[in-house]
Design a protein around this nucleic acid. Structure first.
Lengths: 234, 234
DNA sequence: CGCCGGTATACATCACATGTATCCGGCTCC
DNA sequence: GGAGCCGGATACATGTGATGTATACCGGCG
């Protein structure tokens, strides 16, 4: 174990123990290095590693601070890991399976917690998707926003961050590009309408079923598509 | 955006594009720094950040390599993030809610995929828990192994890594310590028996229900316990 | 087959130069 | 006389270069 790794562990422990609460300022590089008992370069490496993980935030010319440590922030690194996971063959289908398990139950929970404002927001995204059948990029964005809003309606920021990450912007973009030509896009729209209808009635089981149907169809589409365009699945 | 951040992004892109496949060796520090167009110190910071995220692996005196990029490896950093999340008030209950949503459906999936060997392994852990009612540490370990084996029976390594992370070693240890005195430990055992019984029959809905009951009870216990020992919840 | 040294590599430190944000005093304008 | 603006001083992170140390791999020698 290198000195830098020890330094990282020390700083992490200070945060976890409460000695460095969220938002607090770390000593200057020189002092920090002295306290950790190593050179400035190594202290810099430790700080860099922690700031990439969104645990520390460096403000040039000012100082280094502990971030808010909120789930959405810390799980950004998780999102980055998922992006790289897609390079690993098979991980893509695993990822989609996790989503197939999690998103329906999240929708069910959202059904009993969603507010009228959030329902209106979902309506807005759905309308926008109908209007923008020609613009794949815009379509993709509203689709992602639609699903994000549903999960966010659970009020669970950790759950939201996890699902956002495994939904994967890159992956979704690929799917939408592939589906654009076919009639799948139309079916997807009706699936969204079914989900929104169930949520509007605050019907948890129905919401869960509609979400499961949607994700399963997406998964099925991708599974078939991966077989045909094998070479592009890098 | 600092030069180091750019360097990190560049290396990540090289990996994601397939130019640096898993297991491949990076050029020596000097060459790497030259290729990225910066000093060796900054290249070292970039490599350090990526190796902390388990994307690169440094072998001293040998060289720097891309890891296998397997889900279990990359999601170790996710696990680390979860540990720090527990410092954030409220995140603990959010985390448990995610587990309450995910673990039952994972159990249902495991019910249709679990092998006889894995069922035998579960029996082993359950027996071990019965025998070690006095040793909290051992009890905790077999409990964790029990849940891990169930999720692993789904064959989905990504799902396994995610659930392992949110189950949280630290958190579970706290719960077991708190429950040891009370009669809750006995009830927990019977809940485990119910889950294993359902899995043995390959009954997916029953397994899901049993798992939900177990996690919900754990969540309920923690929720009540957090209220009583407010000061210690740091 | 085993030891032994050379070479390549990462590890760690130090000194120095640069860019940038914050703070504070003095000045100007109202 | 007071409020607002400007500029220098200061503190800090950013980035570079040189240097020595520790470790792993490999080939030659006994």
């Amino acid at each position: 174990m290198s000195l830098t790794d020890k330094a990282i562990a020390q700083i992490r422990d200070l945060i976890q123990s409460g000695d460095l609460p969220p938002g607090s300022k770390l000593p200057p590089e020189q002092e920090l290095a002295a306290q950790l008992g190593l050179s400035r370069s190594l202290a810099r490496e430790a700080v860099k590693a922690l700031s990439v993980a969104r645990i520390l935030e460096v403000r040039r010319g000012d100082g280094t601070y502990v971030t808010s440590l909120q789930p959405g922030l810390l799980l950004e690194s998780f999102s980055g890991a998922v992006e790289l996971l897609q390079a690993h063959p098979g991980a893509l289908l695993e990822l989609l399976e996790v989503r197939r398990l999690l998103e329906p139950v999240a929708a069910a929970l959202a059904a009993v917690r969603i507010s009228d404002d959030q329902l209106a927001e979902l309506h807005g995204h759905l309308d926008a998707m109908r209007d923008s059948r020609d613009d794949v990029e815009l379509l993709n964005r509203h689709d992602a926003a639609f699903h994000h809003t549903i999960v966010a309606a659970t009020g669970n920021t950790t759950l939201t961050a996890v699902l956002d990450a495994i939904s994967g912007r890159t992956l979704q973009a690929r799917i939408w590009r592939g589906m654009h030509d076919s009639q799948s896009a139309v079916r997807t729209l009706t699936e969204h309408e079914a989900i929104l209808g169930a949520l509007s009635q605050r019907d948890a089981p129905l919401s869960q079923a509609a979400a499961l149907l949607h994700v399963s169809n997406t998964e099925k589409w991708l599974r078939e598509h991966l077989r045909t365009e094998q070479p592009a699945a890098g």
